[in-house]
Structure formats: C-alpha cells, structure tokens
Design a protein around this nucleic acid. Structure first.
Length: 371
DNA sequence: CATTCGTGGCG
DNA sequence: TCGCCAAGAAT
C-alpha cells in the first residue's frame, strides 16, 4: 500500500504524463485511423488491432471502410460479406461481434455510438480495452485502457511484479492507467502509452536511450527493464488433424460452412471431419460419408497442409473423393455449396483453408485429365 | 481463473 | 525451424 501511494503521487504522475504526451506529439506514426475522428472508423481500427500488428491491419482497414463506409452500411450487410472482408485476418469472432454491434448501434442508439466506456461495454466485442480506447480516442473521455503495450510500459515504469493474467497485477495496471489518463487529451495520452510500448519500450531490446520518461522509470533505475514483464506461460499447442473432402464436379468443388462457435466459426471450408493422425483413406472417407450423409469413396490422397496456430498444431489431410449422390445439405454442416474457384474466392475462409484449397487446385483436381 | 480463438513477423 | 508475441474478448 505504501508503494501504491508513492506510485500515484501527483508529481510522479506529471513526470510521466507530460513528457510522454509531448513525445507523442513529435514522434507519432502517421497511421490512417489517426487521420479520422469518425467513431465508427476508430472502432474498426481498435477491433482489427486486437492481437494483430499495425502493418497487417492497415490494408484490411482501408478495404473494409471502402466496402462498409458507415455503421449503417455494416449493419445492413450480410454476415457472409463481412466475414469475406475479414478473410485472412484471424480471430473471426471479432467480425461476427463487429457486425452484431453495428446492428445494435443502429437499432438501439439511432446509428450513433454511445460515447462513454461504460455504455460501450454493453456492445458485443467491446471489452474493457476497446471500450476505453473508443471512449477516449473518439469521444475524449478520461477512460483508461491497458493493452499488451501499456502493460509492459507500466510494469517497467512502476516495477509491477506478477505474471500476465495475475489478478493483482491487472488491478494495479488498471489503477495506474486510470490515474495517468486524467488530464488533457486523454485519447492522445492513451495512444502515447501504446505508441511508446510499440516503438521504444519494446519487448526485446527496448530503446531506453531514446525514452522520454527514462528518468521516471523504476525498472531502469533498478536495472530490471529486460526482466519486466515476465513472459506469458503458454500451454503447448494441441494437435488437430482434419480430413478434407476434395470433391470435384463439373468445374466446382464442394464447400461447407462451419458452425458459428469454435475454430474458424462461421467460415467456409472444404468439408472437414476430425480424424486421428495416420487414419487410412478408407476410414477418413467413411467419416466424411457420415458427415455428408451420402456415400463417399476415397480416390486418392492429394496432399497435406500444416498450419501452426497459437493453441493448435493443425494438419489438413486432403482426400480426393467422389460418390453417386451429390449432397446439398447435411446436419453436420451449416450449409453446403458447390463452388468454382472464383466463387470460393468470395467466401469467408481461413488462411489455413485457403492454403488447402490452393494445394488441391495446384494438383489439378478441376482439370479434365484422363490420367 | 483458465482456455480458446488466427495470422504474420521477427530474431 | 521455432518460440514469442501483437491496440483482447468470450466463455
């Protein structure tokens, strides 16, 4: 508690706040969402930036805004179009929540975003971070935020101990962020904290010589910058093997839409069933037959695609198949559709599945090869 | 509180 | 090749 009082002492807060804000004014990157004051566009950037690098987001943000220029346009669009625009960006529940939140803003708030963090928190996909970000950046509320950058910066400035996820640590970080954000330009200050973490107070090899608040940094004084914060402890990824049906018919392939929840929720795929590694082709075909509710015969295995996700080691086993009855629906899948490659390119699909599809097409499964 | 959800970049 | 991690949220 003594440390708490010391850390939040007014002079110390000022010694951090003012230099950081001034540094941000001089050094901030010219990012596209910093050129707009449209809450919708700012919200979109915040959702896309969740667990995603700035350089990855920029082209998605620009394309998405061109296609859905307002919250009304987004709310009125079919979910499939939204997922297609999100294709390749990952964490697809963000896109579903974005779509739902847009509809709620239109239905319950007359198309205007609520302007406080507390009110924003009621919308799908708004957690504590995103609510604070939109409230402070778009509406100028003195609302705190803590993301990975801010957690690192504050844990160094104030020597906050504890592993990521530790309850006491999180509480302390939010308390610090709350105290610091109060004052002029809260949105700029929050962005200054994040910008500082992204460009100077980096995870590896931080640029302490260029740091505008080095003099106030307790970790720097103690020579502990490199050991704060401690790395997250991650469980080893689980293995998941899927057998994919590659079923050519008159220039099309069979596609299926996955269930809303879980891995790649709501996205399209080559119809997939989970199998054990090294499952014989005949058995994989039998599983696909059960899922598709029609007889399926394995022709040959045409490749394997491996993908490393954060919590999954994914193996996609491509099985060329055929059968006497072409299915148009099956309980195991939300929807079935026969698509040309051009049509498939317009579907919401994961990068993993895109790689599998590319591999199948590269094997010439749609070519009329006599053999 | 722990787990799950993607992808790409980097050393 | 591999581990780490990036403007987190939902369950």
């Amino acid at each position: 508690m003594t440390l708490e009082v010391f850390a939040l002492e007014a002079g110390r807060l000022a010694a951090i706040r003012a230099p950081l804000l001034a540094w941000y004014g001089r050094e901030k990157r010219d990012l596209p969402w910093r050129r707009t004051s449209d809450p919708y566009a700012i919200w979109l950037s915040e959702v896309m930036l969740q667990q995603t690098q700035v350089s990855t987001v920029i082209p998605y943000w620009e394309r998405f805004l061109a296609r859905f220029p307002s919250v009304q346009a987004l709310a009125a669009a079919p979910l499939d179009d939204v997922l297609a625009a999100w294709r390749g960006l990952g964490y697809y529940s963000r896109a579903r929540n974005l779509h739902r939140a847009a509809q709620e803003v239109v239905a319950h708030f007359g198309g205007r975003f609520p302007s406080t963090a507390k009110a924003l928190l009621t919308l799908p996909g708004f957690g504590r971070y995103t609510a604070g970000a939109v409230a402070s950046i778009a509406f100028g509320e003195e609302a705190p935020l803590v993301d990975g950058n801010v957690a690192r910066v504050l844990s160094r400035l104030f020597v906050v101990e504890g592993l990521p996820g530790d309850k006491a640590r999180e509480a302390r970080l939010w308390t610090l962020a709350s105290a610091l954000v109060k004052g002029e330009r809260p949105g700029d200050f929050n962005q200054a904290l994040m910008e500082h973490g992204a460009t100077v107070c980096r995870p590896e090899r931080p640029l302490c010589l260029l740091c505008p608040v080095r003099g106030a940094c307790l970790a720097h004084q103690a020579g502990r910058v490199s050991e704060l914060p401690p790395a997250k402890v991650r469980a080893p990824p689980k293995r998941l093997t899927l057998a994919l049906a590659v079923w050519p018919h008159e220039g099309t392939l069979l596609f299926a839409r996955r269930a809303e929840k879980g891995l790649f929720g709501g996205l399209w795929e080559l119809p997939a069933v989970e199998v054990e590694p090294s499952t014989p082709d005949e058995e994989a075909a039998l599983r696909l037959s059960e899922a598709l509710e029609v007889p399926v015969t394995a022709l040959d295995a045409i490749g394997t695609v491996k993908r490393q996700l954060t919590h999954r080691a994914l193996t996609l086993y491509l099985l060329r198949v055929t059968g006497p009855h072409r299915p148009s629906r099956a309980k195991a899948f939300h929807e079935l559709r026969w698509c040309t490659p051009a049509q498939a390119a317009e579907l919401g699909m994961s990068t993993a599945m895109q790689r599998a599809l590319d591999a199948a097409l590269a094997r010439g499964v749609l070519l009329n090869v006599a053999g």
